[in-house]
Write a protein that binds this DNA or RNA. Structure first.
Lengths: 103, 103
DNA sequence: TTGATATATCTGAATGCAATGATATTATTG
DNA sequence: CAATAATATCATTGCATTCAGATATATCAA
């Protein structure tokens, strides 16, 4: 039985991990990247080009999301294509698309 | 017509605001607070007590969530009770409760 | 008004995060 | 093998966040 704070319904470890994933998604550039990836396949330099950001910036954000298993890479000769593999991330983007930001 | 990055489906401003709200929720303590608030009414010192955190820390987190209209305060004599007013925050906690953190 | 209780705010120190520019790695082509 | 292209990683710097302790504000009771 995992330890929980009195009266709370979710285990502390679960909230810790959820917060870690949320922290990764809680960045404008990373949300833009996820949004773009959901729209269709792109490779890194294409992403950097479309979002008008330096290659290193895009690559670092992708690396961070890869570490948290939000995206996955697939090499195609010199290019590296990315795709979203975390269903929660997809769901979140759908929520933002539907309800905006809640204001 | 709001400006969007080419090929992306969500306006930049929407993603910016969504990221701002997510950033607030993306913290273990704040998730715990929201979780606890959803379970029933509590005032600040009770929260601090249950979560075993200094009063100033809890108050600061509440203040931050108040600023982003995630929670609302209601004074009752000397006590201040808080409640969650952002439906997206509730939804998010339900997702965490149901699917854990997605692993 | 004084004292006690509950909450909020402020300040400083430590830590974490993000962008930049440079360098390293990997794959491909000649 | 050398040169190029695409991506990843590193190191630095600046900025934001977090916690802790102290102080301020607000409410109530005596």
């Amino acid at each position: 039985m995992p330890r929980t704070t009195p009266h709370s319904t979710i285990a502390d470890e679960t909230l810790d991990r959820a917060a870690a994933v949320l922290r990764v998604l809680a960045h404008p550039v990373r949300l833009r990247i996820v949004d773009r990836l959901l729209a269709g396949p792109v490779h890194v330099s294409q992403l950097a080009d479309e979002l008008d950001l330096p290659q290193a910036v895009v690559s670092q954000h992708l690396s961070q999301m890869r570490a948290h298993e939000i995206v996955q890479q697939r090499r195609e000769s010199r290019r590296v294509f990315y795709e979203v593999i975390n269903p929660h991330a997809e769901h979140l983007l759908e929520c933002i698309r539907k309800h905006g930001d809640g204001r």
